[in-house]
């Protein structure tokens, strides 16, 4: 075990994977000599050489396009998109090519690649450095989409993603890189050094993709969250003094539906929260699944707490961010809801 922040854990995952498998190559804008703008690849080029860790032109369709060619050849490319907000020029390559290659060629070719992307706001990044476009990927057949919420999972899930035989979109909530940010932006950030999930197993640590993790347990209500919102949800529960299941989904596709259904059937109440915009967000899918599988166990309507359907603003960042106060209000509302009160 070693104490790490999320950046160190992500770097450790690539280091571990590159050490055991020569097929693993890492590239993206500024990832080589400099080690990435968030330092996730620092030292890797020195250790593994320039042909396995290198800088690329500022061309996302090229980065993903060559990654697909490399993966089809038999390498295990890990491509970094500097910010998730920049992925769109490479979106066609992901959607039309990487996602469908196995199916359309009936297994003749496949694209086992990982696209790493820092996502989410709370860093005063404005509309081009703050987005959470996960739903654009969960909507695409053939992709796996995952979002870790802590250093231990970040390492284990990245190793699992690199070893996965299908293309994996790996989101890194950048507000969590240096600590478990809980949405209280006006308070000092606590460090991963003092957090149990900042303890990262050494060597080949793997967290299976498709398994949710219960971060707190209670009968009052179920909170379905991932990424930064895991910590916001935990803060809200603590501050309300309630007993709630906080389910960290970790992997959106494949989704641990069983864990969701088990929890909601137990509590009968559900709030879904994510940082991405509301309409057609992944919360809509979660909400539909909960009503489909748990309708007769529900005691109140499901509520969603999300970013608004606006571009991510700069100055108004904390009005946009679904922080603990908004989450608490929604939880309270769902807990108080009864058929009699609604009539």
């Amino acid at each position: 075990m070693a104490r790490m922040n999320m950046i160190e854990a992500i770097r450790d995952a690539m280091d571990t994977a590159m050490g055991v498998d020569k097929r693993v190559v890492v590239f993206g804008e500024d990832v080589g000599y400099y080690g990435g703008v968030f330092r996730c690849t620092q030292g890797l080029q020195k250790k593994y050489g320039k042909s396995r860790v290198f800088d690329t032109p500022i061309n996302e369709s090229g980065i993903i396009g060559v990654a697909i060619g490399m993966a089809a050849y038999g390498l295990r490319p890990v491509a970094e998109i500097q910010f998730a907000d920049y992925v769109y020029p490479g979106y066609d390559q992901i959607v039309s090519e990487a996602a469908r290659l196995r199916h359309r060629s009936a297994g003749d070719f496949s694209a086992p690649l990982v696209v790493r992307m820092p996502c989410g706001g709370g860093i005063h990044g404005g509309q081009t450095h703050s987005q959470s476009p996960e739903a654009l990927f969960t909507h695409v057949a053939g992709l796996k989409t995952v979002i870790p919420s802590n250093p231990s999972d970040a390492k284990g899930m990245l190793i699992a993603a690199i070893e996965d035989d299908d293309p994996v979109i790996y989101f890194e909530p950048k507000r969590l890189y240096n600590g478990p940010f809980d949405g209280h932006h006006d308070q000092p950030l606590t460090s991963w050094r003092n957090h149990p999930l900042g303890e990262v197993p050494d060597g080949h640590h793997r967290v299976a993709l498709g398994e949710a993790a219960l971060r707190s347990e209670g009968d009052d209500i179920t909170l379905l969250v991932y990424g930064t919102l895991v910590h916001v949800a935990l803060a809200a529960v603590r501050e309300l003094g309630i007993a709630a299941d906080v389910l960290d989904l970790r992997s959106l596709i494949p989704l641990d539906l069983e864990a969701i259904v088990r929890s909601v059937k137990k509590t009968g109440r559900c709030v879904i929260a994510h940082e991405a915009t509301l309409t057609s967000g992944f919360g809509a899918e979660l909400s539909a699944l909960v009503q489909e599988h748990c309708f007769w166990h529900l005691e109140a309507p499901i509520e969603r707490v999300t970013g608004w359907d606006t571009p991510y603003p700069h100055a108004q960042e904390w009005y946009y961010f679904p922080g603990p106060e908004r989450l608490k209000k929604a939880i309270r509302h769902v807990l108080d809801a009864t058929p009699a009160k609604q009539s």
Binding site: S51, G62, G65, G69, A72, Q93, S96, E97, L101
Partner: peptide, 25 residues
């Protein structure tokens, strides 16, 4: 013969990536 996409142009850059992989290896 690489699996044909049906989208136009997308595979030109994949050929470059495949060739890069051959050189890396």
């Amino acid at each position: 013969f690489f699996s044909l996409s049906g989208n136009l142009g997308t595979q030109f850059v994949q050929a470059v990536g495949w060739a890069m992989a051959s050189a890396i290896e």
